[in-house]
Write a protein that binds this DNA or RNA. Structure first.
Lengths: 197, 197
DNA sequence: GATCACATACCGACTGGTTAGTCTGCCGGG
DNA sequence: CCCGGCAGACTAACCAGTCGGTATGTGATC
């Protein structure tokens, strides 16, 4: 039993990450003590500092995970072989679904980014920017093709849509009247309708 | 010199509120110590706890101020004598302008709401809800009149727009390429375009 | 296959520093 | 002479990170 799994089946580092994610989303980064995290994960501080350099590293790891996931999915949709209208619609709807599916990560992401040290913050911003630009390229492609209206700068369009995604963690409740997919379809629809020439 | 204005001309409570607003927006609520606030306001802890019951009261006061402001302005636009299309457009644009004008308050509002105690949080949510419902009523009015599409539930439309407002504090920079009014016009335009039947 | 060397995985008491809020008291005007 | 308005030292609690220690596994050597 030296496989870092203890009584539970999942490895300690993942248990720590899961506990941290839930607690950060619940109480916020600053209000979550390292002690609470290790207790929720069923280990002690020694274990945490064995696997992670600092409390901040834990937060950054949460970011890195969700960023990788969303970037991969966006790339897949963007590079698909379909009319630009469909590709944008599917990408727009997908980011809504994956955000809802990882609502904890999302609220941490949007609420706690400023808790990262300048360097780590810069790195996260860079990856975030790459995502934004890939999405913007889709909008611009449609605008050049005349399929989308050019009345609004593409940058603003992207921020408009991401604003609504960002906002999901504030109002979306799994037990609400709308399913994930319904919300995603509606939001993607609003974007596409706004872009009609 | 017992008029609570000290060397400066503004009264101490307002100086404290202003300092707290700036610091909360800059470093976040938890990372701002009461000591820093009183130093920035040029007083000491005695003064702060003379006027405010707690650090949290300071935060709530920031909320209350911005909520009152936005509610008043929304009511004015909503009750104006103009076609529903115009009223919604102006209300939608106005909330963008006032949010940008008070970007500090806005980022505190959206990032630190969960730092309030359950009771105060409930109270803020209630006022927030009132605002949301007034805005939703505008959308519904237009939908009933057939001026706006009914494809999307009005609640979702409101959350869509407020998402973009919420998001402003993340990306808007005063020295960017777009003025406040331009951003406001574009965002209101996107909303109205999305609502075209 | 027994012994030794070393590494990995973790425990938990401890430290140095920080913080919100309190309390006693001074000071000047009405 | 009294009270609002404030100063500033003080306290009790908390917290991130450290460090010495233990237990278990792994590979080399004889």
């Amino acid at each position: 039993m030296a496989k870092a799994t203890d009584g539970n089946g999942t490895p300690v580092p993942q248990r720590l990450l899961a506990a941290a994610t839930r607690l950060f989303a619940e109480r916020g980064y600053d209000r979550t003590s390292v002690q609470e995290i290790v207790e929720a994960a069923g280990v002690t501080k020694g274990a945490l500092y064995h696997y992670f350099g600092s409390k901040e590293d834990l937060l950054q790891e949460v970011y890195a995970r969700v960023l990788r996931l969303q970037q991969d999915r966006l790339d897949a949709y963007a590079n698909a072989d379909a009319p630009i209208e469909e590709r944008l619609r599917e990408a727009a709807a997908d980011v809504v679904v994956t955000t809802i599916e990882n609502l904890d990560d999302a609220s941490i992401f949007f609420r706690s980014m400023h808790h990262l040290s300048p360097e780590k913050n810069k790195q996260v911003r860079m990856e975030r920017r790459r995502y934004h630009e890939r999405f913007r390229a889709l909008v611009e492609e449609g605008q050049r093709a005349g399929v989308f209206s050019s009345a609004t700068p593409a940058d603003l369009v992207v921020d408009y849509h991401f604003g609504s995604v960002h906002h999901l963690s504030t109002w979306y409740r799994p037990d609400g009247p709308l399913s994930q997919q319904e919300v995603a379809d509606h939001l993607a629809d609003l974007l596409l309708r706004a872009l009609r020439p």
